[in-house]
Amino acid sequence: MKKRNLILVSFGILLVVSVINFYINGTKQLYGNDEASIVKVINSIEGYENKSIEVLKIIDFDNLRIAAFLSNNSPGYIQFDKNKDGNYEWESFEVRDDETFSFFIPDERKYLFVTNNENKIAKMQVSINGQRFEQEFTPDKSTVTWVDLPKNDKREYTYRNYRFYDKDGNIIKEYE
């Protein structure tokens, strides 16, 4: 009987220690408070555990933090919201695999362009709500470019006539 009680007590202690360990270590929240923690957050996302992450730029807008990065050299961004304790909690995330030039709209007022060192695009033109928009880029270099979208009372945007040019002014690709 003593042996059985000893086994039950040992099992009970082991169970309590396991639950406490899980609660302390298993529920640790990761925040995007600095570059190193942003990389940890990205690597904690399913499918990105073993990817190399290069943070290119971190920018804050009010209570938002947006980090542009390369994941195995593919452009991406992650967005964080500041909580009541002042920590940045992961909100959204996007990566465009196997691209050298990508653009995102993480905020309704801004375009985010992310390029890697294999990008050949030197200029982009697009019609936004009938207005011609043009932006230049540095080819063969990892870059982040923020661009304000044209003001629009309805906050609706129509994009047409995309044209992408190389450094010599030749059209690389275009679409309506």
Results as ranks from 00 to 15, higher is better:
residue 135 Q to V: 11
residue 147 V to F: 12
residue 68 A to K: 01
residue 28 K to M: 05
residue 42 I to M: 11
residue 115 T to L: 08
residue 167 K to Y: 06
residue 127 S to L: 15
residue 77 Y to R: 01
residue 83 N to M: 01
residue 153 D to R: 09
residue 10 S to Q: 12
residue 73 N to H: 05
residue 147 V to S: 11
residue 156 E to W: 01
residue 123 K to A: 03
residue 158 T to V: 06
residue 26 G to K: 03
residue 167 K to M: 11
residue 9 V to N: 10
residue 122 A to L: 03
residue 9 V to C: 08
residue 174 E to L: 02
residue 13 I to F: 10
residue 129 N to R: 00
residue 18 S to V: 13
residue 145 T to F: 10
residue 63 N to C: 06
residue 142 S to E: 01
residue 170 N to I: 11
residue 132 R to C: 00
residue 92 S to Y: 15
residue 129 N to K: 09
residue 90 W to D: 12
residue 43 N to W: 12
residue 121 I to E: 01
residue 82 K to A: 04
residue 46 E to S: 15
residue 144 V to G: 06
residue 105 I to A: 10
residue 144 V to P: 06
residue 24 I to L: 15
residue 67 A to F: 11
residue 11 F to E: 01
residue 8 L to M: 09
residue 92 S to I: 09
residue 118 E to P: 02
residue 44 S to Y: 14
residue 39 V to W: 10
residue 1 M to D: 11
residue 46 E to K: 11
residue 103 F to E: 08
residue 131 Q to H: 08
residue 174 E to W: 14
residue 69 F to P: 07
residue 94 E to I: 14
residue 19 V to K: 10
residue 156 E to T: 00
residue 175 Y to M: 07
residue 124 M to E: 11
residue 3 K to E: 13
residue 46 E to I: 15
residue 144 V to I: 04
residue 80 F to I: 05
residue 139 P to K: 03
residue 95 V to A: 04
residue 140 D to Y: 13
residue 162 Y to L: 07
residue 63 N to I: 12
residue 90 W to R: 12
residue 64 L to Q: 08
residue 59 I to M: 07
residue 39 V to Y: 13
residue 117 N to F: 08
residue 134 E to W: 00
residue 41 V to N: 03
residue 151 K to F: 14
residue 53 I to P: 07
residue 114 V to Y: 08
residue 42 I to F: 09
residue 12 G to V: 10
residue 164 F to P: 02
residue 113 F to K: 01
residue 27 T to R: 10
residue 26 G to R: 09
residue 17 V to M: 14
residue 68 A to T: 08
residue 53 I to F: 02
residue 42 I to Q: 04
residue 149 L to C: 09
residue 60 D to S: 04
residue 37 S to H: 12
residue 19 V to E: 15
residue 43 N to Q: 15
residue 114 V to N: 06
residue 101 F to A: 03
residue 22 F to V: 14
residue 97 D to Y: 14
residue 113 F to C: 04
residue 149 L to Q: 14
residue 4 R to P: 00
residue 125 Q to P: 02
residue 109 R to S: 01
residue 118 E to H: 00
residue 22 F to P: 04
residue 30 L to W: 01
residue 73 N to P: 03
residue 78 I to G: 05
residue 141 K to F: 01
residue 75 P to F: 01
residue 153 D to M: 11
residue 38 I to M: 09
residue 126 V to C: 10
residue 31 Y to G: 03
residue 111 Y to D: 06
residue 66 I to G: 07
residue 110 K to P: 07
residue 129 N to F: 10
residue 100 T to K: 04
residue 41 V to H: 05
residue 59 I to W: 09
residue 41 V to K: 05
residue 87 N to T: 00
residue 20 I to M: 15
residue 147 V to R: 06
residue 24 I to H: 14
residue 88 Y to H: 09
residue 127 S to V: 13
residue 120 K to P: 12
residue 18 S to Q: 14
residue 48 Y to F: 15
residue 86 G to M: 05
residue 158 T to Q: 05
residue 168 D to H: 02
residue 143 T to E: 08
residue 83 N to Y: 06
residue 38 I to A: 11
residue 103 F to L: 05
residue 108 E to R: 06
residue 26 G to P: 03
residue 24 I to K: 14
residue 117 N to M: 05
residue 106 P to M: 00
residue 10 S to L: 15
